[in-house]
Amino acid sequence: MEVRTIKVFTTVDNINLHTQVVDMSMTYGQQFGPTYLDGADVTKIKPHNSHEGKTFYVLPNDDTLRVEAFEYYHTTDPSFLGRYMSALNHTKKWKYPQVNGLTSIKWADNNCYLATALLTLQQIELKFNPPALQDAYYRARAGEAANFCALILAYCNKTVGELGDVRETMSYLFQHANLDSCKRVLNVVCKTCGQQQTTLKGVEAVMYMGTLSYEQFKKGVQIPCTCGKQATKYLVQQESPFVMMSAPPAQYELKHGTFTCASEYTGNYQCGHYKHITSKETLYCIDGALLTKSSEYKGPITDVFYKENSYTTTIK
């Protein structure tokens, strides 16, 4: 009895394709271990004539594949690729409408935090270190965002349907971005203890939790000093293409032309909904596939993004 075979390709990165001759009487799992086709788990399936010449994702289970996976995804987590594939199996079914010149995501599976993050990423200057993220990001900007969303979920250790947080998501993504040249110098002034300067680099240099107003941050924000008295913390120097200011959701007025974009969060910790506000020729609110415009805006804002380049204080 002759062994019926077909020729397929296996890959971990969709760049390096490895030619395989597979036995049609055995499952993919018996031949390769966990195997995925377009995100779908085909591990328990036997090869079919229609699979001839198709590319299958496999887990990096030998040295060659491990090197290829690390170079593309910059992670050695053995569960990463499987999590990416199972997320992709959902995100490829989502709709990605162009809204006001940006790629958004039609609401499904509690994905409003991903839509808000995706919209924000198209408006701030950011370059990702893992080629996987950078490639998928370019495709997302062009309207094909399924891979990018699935990668975000995998890097953030999230599953489809789980509630997510924009600030946490951005923080994970910033860790995989090139923020080497970003720098922030802060000064804390206390009447009792004097003053202390701190220099922050990388992710810490672009994120701040405690106030939404970048102007206020430049002037000074009140913080408790270690001595128990009130101290003032203010920005001395900022070198970065953008800054992200966050605070627990509270009524906040966004003035046209003073910011790049913002995240609105309605609801409580267990259950809520994100919308995205962007400042173009007027203010726009993007909620999944829905767009509304207004000249002014007041609502429960939790993150505001500002364009920056270089700032030095005039406070002496």
Rank of each mutant, 00 (worst) to 15 (best):
129 N>I: 10
304 V>I: 14
225 C>G: 02
105 I>C: 01
12 V>T: 09
296 E>Q: 11
185 V>F: 03
234 Y>I: 10
76 T>V: 10
79 S>G: 14
280 K>Q: 14
140 A>N: 03
114 L>N: 02
295 S>H: 14
139 R>T: 07
25 S>V: 14
227 C>R: 03
130 P>S: 08
61 N>H: 07
160 V>R: 03
124 I>Y: 01
55 T>K: 08
195 Q>D: 13
314 T>R: 10
155 Y>Q: 03
164 G>I: 03
116 T>R: 15
201 K>P: 06
314 T>P: 08
238 Q>I: 02
151 L>A: 00
171 S>M: 15
279 S>H: 06
143 G>D: 01
115 A>N: 09
142 A>Q: 15
226 T>D: 15
186 L>Y: 13
33 G>W: 00
128 F>I: 01
74 H>R: 10
192 T>I: 08
184 R>F: 09
105 I>D: 15
252 Y>L: 03
234 Y>D: 06
303 D>H: 01
263 S>C: 13
134 Q>V: 09
96 Y>V: 03
246 S>A: 04
40 A>I: 15
126 L>R: 04
224 P>V: 12
251 Q>I: 13
293 K>G: 10
233 K>S: 13
297 Y>A: 07
168 E>F: 09
132 A>D: 00
179 L>S: 00
219 K>M: 15
310 S>C: 14
288 G>D: 06
136 A>R: 03
235 L>G: 02
293 K>S: 13
209 M>V: 11
38 D>S: 12
45 I>P: 01
299 G>F: 03
164 G>M: 02
255 K>N: 07
280 K>E: 15
270 Q>S: 13
136 A>G: 06
215 E>T: 13
79 S>R: 14
25 S>E: 15
198 T>M: 07
160 V>S: 02
295 S>T: 10
139 R>M: 07
241 P>M: 08
137 Y>C: 04
119 L>V: 07
284 Y>H: 09
103 T>E: 03
20 Q>N: 08
100 N>F: 09
6 I>G: 02
217 F>N: 08
276 H>L: 04
261 C>P: 08
55 T>S: 09
170 M>N: 02
17 L>S: 07
121 L>K: 04
144 E>N: 13
21 V>K: 15
124 I>T: 05
294 S>Q: 12
160 V>H: 05
193 C>E: 08
180 D>V: 07
223 I>R: 06
56 F>N: 05
239 E>R: 12
15 I>P: 00
230 Q>L: 14
28 Y>C: 02
94 W>S: 02
23 D>R: 09
23 D>Q: 10
83 R>H: 06
180 D>T: 07
255 K>T: 08
294 S>Y: 14
224 P>E: 13
243 V>S: 05
259 F>D: 05
224 P>S: 10
38 D>I: 04
24 M>R: 07
247 A>D: 05
266 T>M: 03
45 I>V: 13
218 K>G: 03
273 H>C: 07
308 E>M: 11
202 G>Y: 02
168 E>D: 13
258 T>N: 13
21 V>A: 09
279 S>E: 03
74 H>E: 07
72 Y>D: 09
143 G>L: 01
233 K>V: 14
176 H>T: 02
206 V>Y: 06
146 A>S: 13
19 T>V: 12
292 T>A: 10
280 K>T: 09
233 K>R: 11
114 L>M: 06
205 A>K: 02
179 L>V: 06
233 K>C: 14
315 I>L: 13
206 V>Q: 05
24 M>Y: 06
243 V>K: 08
234 Y>C: 12
198 T>Y: 14
159 T>Q: 13
221 V>L: 11
158 K>D: 00
164 G>W: 04
27 T>K: 11
302 T>S: 13
217 F>Q: 03
169 T>C: 09
5 T>F: 10
259 F>N: 09
212 L>Q: 02
291 L>C: 14
75 T>F: 01
297 Y>H: 11
220 G>P: 10
141 R>G: 09
110 N>F: 01
249 P>E: 12
273 H>G: 05
253 E>K: 07
111 N>A: 02
54 K>F: 09
206 V>H: 04
302 T>W: 05
154 A>L: 01
6 I>D: 03
172 Y>R: 11
106 K>I: 07
201 K>Y: 12
260 T>I: 10
295 S>I: 13
36 Y>C: 03
167 R>W: 15
235 L>S: 05
209 M>F: 12
305 F>V: 10
44 K>V: 14
42 V>S: 04
52 E>H: 10
54 K>P: 00
166 V>E: 01
75 T>E: 14
210 G>M: 10
260 T>S: 05
210 G>F: 01
273 H>A: 09
112 C>M: 12
312 T>L: 13
71 E>Q: 10
251 Q>F: 10
264 E>G: 15
236 V>M: 08
150 A>N: 01
233 K>A: 13
187 N>W: 11
134 Q>H: 05
132 A>T: 02
174 F>P: 00
208 Y>W: 11
264 E>V: 08
60 P>I: 00
241 P>F: 02
293 K>D: 10
52 E>Q: 12
128 F>V: 00
38 D>A: 12
222 Q>M: 11
238 Q>D: 04
265 Y>A: 07
66 R>V: 14
135 D>A: 12
